[in-house]
Simulated scan of single mutants.
Amino acid sequence: MSLQPPSSNKSNTISSNTFVHKLYNMVVDNQYQHLIAWNYTGSSFIVCNIMEFSRDVLPKHFKHNNFSSFVRQYGFHKVNKSPRGHRTLAENQIWEFSHPKFIKDRPDYLDEIKRKSLETETTRRDHGDINSHMAMMQVSQSEMAQQLARLQDNFSQVVRELADTKSKQHKQQQVLKNMMDFLSSRHGAQCKPPFYLCLSI
């Protein structure tokens, strides 16, 4: 009477033609445990050194080593423990991914993990392009608003300077008029005969 093989070895009999089966085999393979393994709950897997993993392990199973592209195509989600700006160098080398159907000791779920359709990928890319275009438009709009504000400030400054110039010009004209009036009055007084001559006449 034959014994049923353990679930951890059952994956060896599963076809490795798809990415998820190959990935599952890598996670349960003892020779890769220092680079890729389940987390303590078995609900996600962890890549401990992404550079070494991409260099030494992926080429043995795939044609290229763009691992993050693979997992995105099959709906895996990257688990971020801390915000990007607060991660240490070691944290940047540790990647954790999860999928509701990619679970330890449950290789029977693997066939339910489907690659995203081309339409979905195209739609996501189109949405990404639209979002990028909108972001660029918002940046351009913000720059135009700043330029308009600067032009308005410059125009207001020119108007103020013009008003000051007109005020100074008016004051100068008033001073010149006063001087002319003063000179005219002095000249008129010099042309009049002396007071005693007027009495003799």
Rank of each mutant, 00 (worst) to 15 (best):
D153Y: 10
L118E: 13
K116T: 06
H86S: 07
E143P: 04
V28Q: 01
F182L: 11
F195G: 00
I113G: 00
R115H: 10
A189V: 06
S15D: 10
R186C: 09
V158T: 01
E143C: 09
T18Q: 05
M180I: 06
L118C: 12
N178S: 11
T41D: 12
G75R: 00
L35Q: 03
H170C: 13
L199R: 07
K166C: 14
N65K: 13
Y24A: 00
V57F: 00
Q174R: 10
V158R: 01
A135I: 01
P107M: 03
P5W: 03
T13F: 09
E96C: 14
K168P: 01
T165I: 13
Y32S: 02
M179I: 08
K22N: 06
F62S: 04
S185C: 06
N30D: 13
F195E: 02
L162S: 14
R55W: 05
K81T: 09
L148E: 06
P5N: 11
V159L: 10
D129Q: 08
N92D: 07
A37G: 06
L148C: 11
D56S: 15
D29A: 15
I130M: 04
N66C: 14
Q173T: 06
G188K: 12
M137C: 12
L89V: 06
H34L: 04
V175Y: 02
V139D: 07
S43P: 03
H99R: 01
V71K: 00
W38V: 05
Q190M: 13
P5C: 12
T165Y: 13
K10N: 09
F67S: 01
H61I: 10
D29M: 02
M134I: 03
R160V: 05
M136I: 03
P107G: 15
H86P: 00
Q152F: 07
Q173S: 10
F45T: 03
F102K: 00
V139S: 14
S16W: 01
S167C: 15
L197N: 05
V175M: 04
F76R: 00
H86E: 04
N30L: 11
K114C: 10
Q146D: 10
S117D: 06
D108L: 15
H77R: 12
L151K: 08
S82W: 04
A163M: 12
F102V: 08
S16Q: 06
P6S: 14
N178T: 06
L162N: 15
S7T: 12
H77K: 15
K78L: 05
V79R: 03
L110R: 00
V71Y: 01
P107F: 05
Q147R: 08
N154S: 12
H170F: 07
F70L: 04
R72C: 13
L110K: 01
P193H: 03
H34P: 02
A163G: 11
L3F: 15
M180D: 11
K168S: 13
W95A: 05
S184L: 02
Y196D: 08
H21Q: 10
V71G: 00
H187P: 02
R125L: 07
